[in-house]
């Protein structure tokens, strides 16, 4: 099912949680709503589920205006952060409950619930109570319960936040598998950029209720729309050095060191030069000089932190260079993963 959001605004008293939000979500995709805590992700999701209604704007499911339609008529499945499984019902009863409400005959109910249980791999624990399951198993049951009535749209609000790191990775792969197997249009909320990058067809990145960028995960990483997007994605975080533009060149720090990066904006514009750790190359013939602070091994990579124009930054350097503390080095940048943003507005110039 295709979802169209038109200029959605949601205000709580005088606090605007979502502002002028427009997006189209294509049928069968898994789209992630990503952003820091409090940026309005849950509010947006709750408007899609009908738990909340927008202050302004319209929501369309295919061609139906569902803006003010009540939850139960929308045909959605909802998965909560803390699962919200009914503690007094067994796994089977939990999965059956949405069908019981729809007055599906009992035999069919159980058959469909069992199929769902198989899909999410909990078929061996149908008679257990939620309290007897691990967090990951509970989340599987919650997904089965959300999917059993064959919703047009599956909504998941931070479904992995209560799991430990290893289970989180396992479960996000599971969610992707289940989504691909069922082909259900899915909106997934998270504040974890790695999670979003790994499972999404598209990511919507939000900040303070405003959509920042809506794109494929790789595109968000390679071509961030603004400074916020660049800062939010990537591990290690993107390097940022403050500078100023003169004669179309970005000069870094107090000493106005020429970065060798060219940008077409007015002289005197204050900017951020942002670059990814993998976009910096060791080149001792370069006139751009830096001083090594330390090197550390991260898995099979070696990451070097060094002082560039008074700011500590990091880069994946040649592992064989055997750099020493306080050693002076020359560096230059690759063509990709290097950006120039306005210092104040975060607008992207390069």
């Amino acid at each position: 099912m295709r979802i169209r959001l038109e200029n959605i605004v949601k205000r709580f008293d005088d606090n605007t949680a979502v502002n002028d939000f427009s997006a189209v979500i294509e049928s069968g995709e898994l789209v992630t709503l990503l952003g820091p805590s409090g940026c309005g992700k849950s509010t947006m999701l709750n408007m899609l589920s009908g738990i909340l209604y927008p202050t302004e704007g319209k929501i369309y499911f295919d061609d139906d205006d569902v803006t003010f339609m009540s939850s139960e008529k929308r045909g959605i499945g909802l998965v909560f952060q803390n699962y919200a499984l009914y503690p007094h019902m067994t796994v089977l009863e939990n999965i059956c409950f949405p069908l019981e409400i729809k007055k599906v005959p009992k035999a069919e109910r159980i058959e469909r619930a069992k199929k769902m249980a198989e899909l999410v791999h909990v078929e061996g624990m149908l008679n257990r109570k939620p309290g007897q399951l691990s967090g990951g198993q509970q989340q599987r049951v919650a997904i089965a319960r959300a999917l059993v009535k064959e919703p047009r749209l599956l909504l998941l609000d931070e479904p992995l936040s209560n799991l430990d790191a290893r289970l989180r990775i396992e479960m996000r792969e599971e969610i992707r598998r289940i989504q691909l197997e069922t082909g259900v249009t899915t909106i997934f909320v998270t504040h974890d950029q790695e999670e979003a990058m790994s499972i999404s067809d598209h990511i919507i990145l939000m900040k303070l209720g405003v959509l920042q960028q809506y794109d494929k995960p790789q595109a968000l990483y390679d071509q961030p729309a603004n400074c916020f997007v660049a800062d939010f994605l990537g591990n290690p975080p993107i390097n940022k050095v403050a500078g100023v533009v003169q004669d179309g060149k970005v000069l870094l720090g107090e000493d106005k060191i020429d970065s060798g990066i060219k940008v077409d904006v007015a002289d005197g514009t204050r900017v951020w030069l942002s670059f990814r750790a993998e976009s910096v190359i060791l080149d001792n013939s370069s006139s751009l000089r830096a001083k090594v602070i330390m090197t550390s091994v991260m898995g099979k990579e070696v990451i070097t932190s060094f002082d560039l124009a008074g700011k500590e930054v990091r880069g994946y350097m040649d592992a064989n260079a055997e750099l020493q503390r306080d050693q002076e080095i020359g560096i230059r940048f690759k063509n990709s993963g290097v950006f120039v943003f306005d210092y104040e507005s975060g607008e992207r110039y390069l």
Partner: peptide
């Protein structure tokens, strides 16, 4: 009783 149980049930149309 966690109010989330009611939300979950209402979304399913109970």
């Amino acid at each position: 009783i966690d109010p989330l149980y009611y939300t979950a049930a209402k979304v399913d149309g109970a």
